[in-house]
Design a binder for these strands. Structure first.
Lengths: 231, 231
DNA sequence: CGTGAGCTTGACTAGGTTCAAACGGGGTGG
DNA sequence: CCACCCCGTTTGAACCTAGTCAAGCTCACG
């Protein structure tokens, strides 16, 4: 197996883990490696959806921007996640890098061609798609029916779980996104995000040594806020 | 082709339209027909996801209910739409009938078995899944970043488009859902829904002869409300 | 050591929720 | 056949959460 894949943070992703060493090589041989600077776009929502990406390192947002400047972040994309598994001619969401990002890019056609020889591949891609759908529905519930503090509690536990896949930080982790990103993910404003953080801090559920370094001091209480309505 | 399929409202759905007459017969032969009364559940979120449904007639909601009673409707399901294309062991959303509903039910395993002989089928199922994802992301934007009137305008144009598939009502159509359902779909309260309807009525963009009969009097203005922010 | 971007906090405002009452139309029973 | 009731809807008034605007703070960087 090529060394690059061996060391890739996405090696254990839903897709790549489905493949043996030889198969990975085949997959890699038709991949283009791409790099994107922090703040730049991997792809734009209006681009024709010819490529699929698998993030190797860094973090992205999937977001949509309205003509009046209102923005909604649909998801935070971590290594191993896919971008561009889409219906329709265009992507419908843009992917913006929060970090310097590296990714594998495939021509959708080439991947579809591989489906025939490797049916697992197709299965996995669609398992991934339906997991994305489930996560999006979770978020829908949160946006529609939860208040600011509940939204932040949900967000913190979500990010904690995501980042735990890559490093087993104890209870502390570093947020790769700004307060504006968090606000645009949860459908609130920066100020409200900040106030909700402060309330959780005052109540002793979290700690913020720096603005972007979070310590979860009481996971159970946070989980209760998300589940029930103990405001 | 069996007469039932021939007359089915879902005959031209993304799935069934992919099949020739003989193939439809094969699909139908392994289907169970189910009927559900208005207000009853086709399936519950915690059920193990063994079955897939294709709605033949009637309208359903896909919804999630929190322990404290807060509810979020994820989608309105019309004839031809699928229910239960899911990852994970459970459905994760419940399906509730707004009308008397009839549907075709398949064992997920049986459908998966058909994939081998009919690869189109698998493709179609996943096209459908990714279209659902796109619609869910639209809704996410609306919930996160739009105000009450914009939400209602979006909702009306969405329902108008959906129902136009089945009958070419001119500018008038009948809502199959209550105000509460609309509220739980848009993440607002019944009263706010009602007030938003009234504002649109006063501004001459819609008419409500009965509470559930809507006439779109100015589609362009409604579309503007959804796109830009002409509040 | 100064600067600026991002974050926090405060004061005020506005849009949506809550609680309560009135309305309306369909269905039931006298 | 009419009166009544009930459920869903509409409207009103008070309240409250989150948004807006503005100032001050923090910390990384030049």
């Amino acid at each position: 197996m090529g060394e690059i894949c061996q060391k890739c943070q996405a090696r254990n992703s839903a897709l790549c883990s489905a493949m043996t060493g030889d198969e990975i090589d085949e997959l890699f041989s038709i991949a283009h490696r791409v790099k994107v600077d922090s703040g730049s776009y991997l792809l734009h929502e209006e681009d024709s959806a010819r490529f699929v990406y698998n993030l190797s390192s860094g973090v992205c947002t999937l977001e949509r921007l309205a003509s009046d400047g209102r923005r909604q972040i649909m998801a935070f994309v971590y290594p191993g996640d896919f971008i561009g598994i889409n219906s329709g001619p265009a992507y419908s969401v843009s992917a913006r890098a929060l970090d310097p990002v590296t990714a594998c890019r495939w021509n959708m056609k080439d991947v579809a061609a591989l489906y025939k020889s490797h049916p697992v591949l197709e299965q996995r891609v669609h398992e991934i798609a339906s997991r994305v759908l489930a996560a999006t529905m979770d978020q829908l519930f949160v946006l529609g029916r939860k208040n600011a503090v509940e939204k932040i509690a949900y967000f913190l536990l979500y990010i904690d779980a995501r980042q735990r896949q890559f490093d087993d930080h104890g209870d502390s982790f570093v947020l790769p996104m700004t307060r504006i990103d968090i606000a645009d993910y949860l459908g609130i404003t920066v100020e409200t995000v900040s106030r909700a953080f402060s309330r959780l801090k005052r109540r002793g559920l979290i700690d913020l040594s720096q603005a972007w370094t979070v310590t979860l001091k009481d996971r159970k209480a946070l989980q209760n806020i998300v589940d029930h309505t103990v405001i």
